[in-house]
Each structure stands twice: as C-alpha cells, then as structure tokens.
Simulated scan of single mutants.
Amino acid sequence: MIAKVNNDLKHPDRPNYPDRDLLVAATRLSKLIIRAQLCELLHLPAFARESLLGSSAGRDAVGALKHAGLTLAEDGSVTRGGMAATEC
C-alpha cells in the first residue's frame, strides 16, 4: 500500500491518484511502521513494540483506516467496500 501510494505520487501521469483518505492512512501507517522498526533495531523488549500499537500513533493509523472505510490485507492491498482503494 505505502509503496503504491508513493509511486502514484511520484508519477502524476498515472490514472489513479490516491485520494486524501488513502494518503492520510498511508502516512500514519508509515510513521507507525518506522517506530516499530526502531524498536527492533534498538533491541528493545517486546513490550515496547506492543505498547506502540496502543499509543496515539497506533490509534491514529487504525483510526485513519477505519474512518476511510479502508481494509488492509496481509499482502499490502487496500480495499474500500470490496473495491481496490485506488479504483474508488
């Protein structure tokens, strides 16, 4: 999801420009992932990463996805109402 949104932004000639809700969700999710990676790189205890999910960053990422009605699959694809989010 994040890579696709980034590529769509870098190439404005593409037919599917990500909408505002998708941009907000990708941004908030990216911040959460970066912080989680830092936990790994700094060899912090597992509870540090787990507490991150309950933090404001975790709630913001989940809230942005829910607000937009977006569902993120394990393969990184995003759907909104059964339709690929970039087709909405």
Rank of each mutant, 00 (worst) to 15 (best):
A57C: 02
C39Y: 06
A25S: 08
P15M: 08
L9P: 03
R14A: 05
R35Y: 08
D19L: 03
Q37L: 13
V62H: 09
A64H: 02
D21P: 09
A68D: 10
E50C: 03
R20P: 05
D21V: 06
G76H: 04
I2W: 06
L23S: 05
L42H: 08
L22Q: 10
L65F: 13
T86W: 15
L52M: 02
G54V: 00
H67P: 02
L44T: 15
V78L: 07
G58V: 01
K4W: 08
G69I: 07
P15H: 09
K4T: 13
H67C: 06
E40I: 15
R14D: 03
L29P: 01
L65T: 04
P12A: 06
I33H: 06
T71L: 10
L29D: 00
A84K: 05
L29Y: 11
P45R: 10
A36D: 06
T27Y: 06
I2G: 02
S51M: 14
Y17A: 15
R14H: 13
L52D: 01
H67M: 14
L72G: 01
G58N: 01
T79N: 06
S56Y: 05
A85R: 08
L22P: 10
F47E: 15
L23Q: 10
S55V: 00
A85Q: 05
Y17H: 14
E40T: 10
D75R: 06
S30C: 07
A25I: 03
M1Q: 08
V62I: 10
S56G: 04
K4V: 12
P12L: 09
N6K: 09
R20V: 14
R49G: 11
A84F: 01
M1V: 02
A84M: 05
R49L: 11
I33L: 12
D75T: 03
H43M: 10
R49E: 14
A46P: 04
S51A: 09
P45Y: 08
S56D: 15
R49Q: 10
A61L: 05
D8Y: 14
H43I: 14
H11A: 06
A3F: 04
N16L: 11
R49T: 07
P18Q: 02
C88Y: 12
N7S: 07
L29A: 07
P45A: 07
G82H: 12
A36V: 02
A36S: 12
G82T: 11
C39R: 05
A61P: 06
L23P: 01
C88T: 11
A84G: 02
K4S: 11
E74V: 11
T86M: 12
A46N: 08
S51F: 05
V5L: 05
V62N: 04
D60S: 05
S77V: 05
E74I: 06
G63E: 03
